[in-house]
Structures are given as C-alpha cells and as structure tokens.
Design a protein around this nucleic acid. Structure first.
Lengths: 178, 178, 178, 178
DNA sequence: AATGAATGAGGTTTCATTCAT
DNA sequence: AATGAATGAAACCTCATTCAT
C-alpha cells in the first residue's frame, strides 16, 4: 500500500458512499490494513483529503485536449464528448467530480477547483465551436454564446445524467449544423 | 421553536457549512436551545433529515409556473429566469439545492429529488420554448433539443455561478430570436 | 459528580500516580463514571488541567497566615510549621505541590505558581523571623538572611522528607534562640 | 549514535520539555534517526529510562568532593557552591535532577535517588560545617543542625532558583562567620 | 546499524441518544 | 417544552513495538 492507493481509495469512498462515510477505519478496512497504518503514510485525515485534492488537481485541471479540427462536425463533437468522458466517466476521475460536487458549498478549495474545471471545459468548448463557426460547419452569429450552451449542456448531461451525452450532441448538431 | 425552525436551520447548516457539519449539538446551538430539546420534536437525527426532505419536496418539486406566453420573447425568458431564481437563489430553497448536490451520490432520495427537480425545470423549459417556436418568436427546427439546451445552461448558470443567468438568457436570445 | 470532584480526583491521580497516569479513562474510572461524561463538564483534558491550576491557585497562593507573635519563640515557630503543614501535608493541597514539582520544568504555569508559592512562604517567614529578632527572641544580625534559611529548610523538609519538620524547627531554635 | 547519545538526549527531553514528552518518535527525531533504530540499541522504552537512571546514578550519586579545608571560610563555602553547581547547573546532570523532581512521586526509583542525592549533599555539608566549627571559623553550638540548614537552603536555591546561590552563601556567612 | 511498513492498545474527542426532571 | 447529566459507539490520533530487509 502506498500513498496513491490511499488517495484513490479515499476518493472512491467519497464518490460511492459519500464524503461522510470516509472514515479512517472504513478506509483502512477497504485497503485491507489497520487504521493505524494510514498514519505511517499521512499525518492526519485532513492531509489525506488534501492529498486527494492535490492528486486530482494535477490530474484533472490541466487536461490537454487535442482535436483534429479538420474532421466533420460530427467527428469533432464526438471527440469533445470523448474528452469530457475522460473526466466524468473515468473510473478514478469521476470520483474527483463527485468530491467537488459534494464539497463545493462547504470547502473553498472544492469550489475553486470546480470553477477551474468548468472554465477549462468552457474554454475548450469555445475553441472547438468558434473554429467550426469559422469553417462554416455550424451556423451562428454568436459563437461564444453558443460554445457556452454546448459546454454547459454537455457538462449537465454528464453530471446529472438526465440526458445521454451522445443524444445531447446529436440535438446540438440538429440545431446548428450547416 | 417548532419543527419548521429545526428543519430550516438544519438546511441552512447543510448549505452554509456542509452536510458533515450538521450535528445535533451544532444545530441546537444555532437554534439557541440544548441538544436534548431537539428530541422533543424529533425522534432522531435521521427523522430531522427526512423532515428536511419532506419539507422541501413539498415546497420545491411541484412549483407552479405561470407565464404570460403572449409577451415578447425577452419578457417570457425573463419570467423563466425569475422562476428559476425562486428556486436557486431563494434564501431557503437554495439550501435544498445544496443538500441535493451534496448528497446526490450518497442518498438515493437526494438523487431522485434532483432528477425530479431537473425534470420539472426541463418540462417547463420545453413548454416555453416550444410555444415560442410555434409562435415564431424563435427560429428552430428542433424545439425539444433547444429547450434542453436552454434548461441545462440556465441551471448550470445558477448552480455553478460561472455565468450570470441574465447574460445566459441574453446569449440565448441573440442566437435564436427571430 | 461536579466540576470540583473532577478537579480533585485529577489532582489526586497526579500526586499519587504521576502526571502521566492522568488519563481520561482512568480519571473517569476513579470517579465511577464513563469517560464521555467528563466531556459534559469540561471541553477537553487541557481544560481540566487548567481548572486544577485555577482551583489550587485560588486555594493555595494567597493563604492567610495569622500568628500570635507575642507567644514564646517555640510556639511561634510551631504555628509556622502548622501553617506549612496546611499546605504540604493537607490531603488535597499536597496534590497541588506535587503537580507543581512534576510540571515545574515543563509548564510555565507550574513554574510561576511554584515561585509565587515559595515567595509567599518566604515573606511569611520573614515577617515572623524579623519580629522575633526585634523582640530579642532570637539573636541575629541579619534577620532577612535568617528568615530565608528558615523558610528554605522548612520547605525542603516538607517536600523532600529528609528531615522531620518538627526536628528542623528544634534544630533552628537550638541555634538561634536567645 | 550510541547508547550514551540516546540516554543523554532522553534526559534532555525530560528536563526541557517534560517527562511526558519523552516519546520514542520524538527522541528519534531529536537524534536524527528513525524510531525503529532505537530498538537496535535498547529493547524497550523502559530500558532506555532505566539506562538513564543507571547512567546518572553512576555519575551523580557518588560525586567525590575534595575541599581544601584549610582555606578561609569564604573560600571553603565557595568550593561547596561550585561543587553543588557541578550537579545542579551542569548541562547534563541538571537533567537528572529534573527527572528526579518530576518522577519523585510516581517512581520509587526516582524517590530513592533523590533521597540518596540529598543525603550525599547533606553529609558533605556536615563535613565542611563541622570542620569549620571545630576550627572556629564559624560560631555555633549545633554544627549538625547548622549543616542541614546550609545544605537545604543551598539546594533550595539551586532547584527553585528563588535566590542566587552565591547570595545564599553570603547570607550564611554574614550570620555565622566568627 | 538502521529503517520502512505495519499494528494493537489505548489515548482524546465527538456524536447521537436516553432519561429523569 | 425543555434540559442537565450521562453514556455507548465510534471517530481521530499517538504510542511502543515488531519484523523483514
């Protein structure tokens, strides 16, 4: 067992059973060690939680996003969905998203990370959408506003699971593709 | 002090300081009574939390929504924003939204309520948008998809506060008004 | 059980078994209650220890000392010994002395209290001895120095128990009585 | 790092921060090694503490004391003070004194060592004082009682630091020198 | 000679709960 | 309607100790 195991297991518990279920005994039990062993690796529970943030901030807040913009609109947006998926449905990263949601109103850090994350997605969305607008793949007089619509509806689809993200993209295309 | 005071104070603590800060001592302290007094009103902490859900489910999940659809598009959407505001920025109701966000992944009930809430908003959005489409106030070939875009981006604006909801509506109008 | 019971029992444990044996479980056990009950009365172990200091500072650091100075030298010094006894061999106060000794090097507060206590005794000693010198009951050219000798040797006798305090006084008298 | 380093560092911690701060992690940290390393040198914490006693009992309980008794009274008593200083203000030995004080009421061994130590000082005091009395350097009818006064007041001056030991000796001389 | 890793026991503290008043 | 007092359970944390390396 190393620090990373602890960090990931902690994140999984938070996502799967809620932040309040993250107790050291339970975490230790899930890791197959005794409670006291955790203290060899971390000074306190707070440090574990900090480490979870540290780990995922590095992993999630600066995701590179490369898309071949010369593709068909469908393919470009598919890439975006697939990129979003890496964040929202990835086995480990989704735990971070859940943490942020649960703690957004209580921890400044979660709030800040949530803002950064959304900003990142919004700016990536803007890059794609304005390019598509320039190339005439989609018709719009206000690419920036459109990019926000795209980003927020896709994020909402992933987080609240009311819509299938794929359908969300299809709907988007049906509305705007030239 | 009556049940309602307890319910609201509990909800406020959850929103303002996080679900894990809702302890009976703290709740009692905020209410200016002693911990044991809470047991006169409720059998257990779980019952208090249940009562919070009960209270807000009644209050939030079936919000009537009456809009004068004969108005100008701007005015209609303004009404929608104002309706959304009654939910997301209302001093008390916003506590419920925060509860749902925090507990969505851990409590089935929070998840279910969140779905209901979003569904309600989506269907209200659809009612407005399709009417506007029929009346020719906005140009679109897929009013349902558009209504989802509208609903999700407005909800996102309220919950994540990345955009001002008013701006979000303006952007929407600039894209679609006839 | 009230605060005073806890304070005294804590002091007794410190004196009789050492500062490091003062654990909350042990303290509770001695008081015939459960560990958690202590937290109804005090916020933390530290507060209990503070309260011990508070209690004994009030009780021990400003002991009034009235002696009939018109008595024979023997009787005056006997009174002093009896006064010292109220401090050093009293069932409860002796616990404070032990606390100060044990913690003198580690706690500033214990050090300060020890200094105050000794100063009090020294000044009381000086009052007696200089009066006796004035009245010619004892022969000395330096009553202040003599009073310190008296105070320190008596204190030493009580604390280190190498000599019987009574004998200590007898020796003193044999040296100085006129 | 050898046994002696451990013993001395342990003693320093006890003196400077209190007996309860002597934990193996802290001791190891101060020594710049890891906790487990201590077990190469000692079987247990108790053995370390025993070794501290062993070390200082050898070093402190049989201090040789040679004074040139033919000197002037001032010089003889100066020698005594200087001898006392070797014990009470020596960088390492003072740690033992502190240990004894802190543990006197809790450890039989500390109590016994304290008694031995004081006895040693008292008997050395008696040797000096009676010699001085015989030689007529000081006037007294009860050299034994006087020697106790001297010993206890000097010890008190060193331990409780209420008086400067030098001043204590001067006072003594002013009272008794022929 | 030293240490990384783990652990049982026991420490302090918090929490929901009970109950007599 | 409220509360003072107590408590079992479980939380976080520390400690001395062990053991393979």
């Amino acid at each position: 067992m190393d620090k990373k195991d602890i960090i990931l297991q902690a994140a999984f518990i938070i996502r799967d059973e809620g932040y309040d279920r993250l107790t050291l005994s339970y975490l230790a039990q899930k890791l197959g060690v005794r409670k006291a062993s955790l203290y060899y690796h971390f000074d306190s529970k707070d440090r574990i939680i900090s480490a979870v943030y540290d780990y995922f901030e590095k992993d999630c807040l600066h995701l590179s996003f490369t898309v071949d913009l010369s593709q068909e609109p469908e393919a470009v947006l598919e890439s975006a969905v697939s990129h979003w998926s890496d964040l929202f449905t990835d086995r480990t990263r989704s735990a971070f998203i859940s943490l942020l949601q649960q703690r957004m109103d209580a921890d400044q850090r979660a709030w800040d990370d949530m803002q950064s994350l959304l900003l990142m997605l919004y700016s990536q969305s803007e890059a794609i959408i304005s390019n598509m607008a320039e190339r005439g793949s989609i018709r719009t007089n206000n690419p920036q506003a459109l990019s926000r619509l795209f980003a927020s509806s896709l994020t909402a689809a992933f987080i609240w699971e009311l819509e299938d993200p794929q359908d969300c993209v299809k709907g988007f295309l049906s509305l705007f593709s030239a």
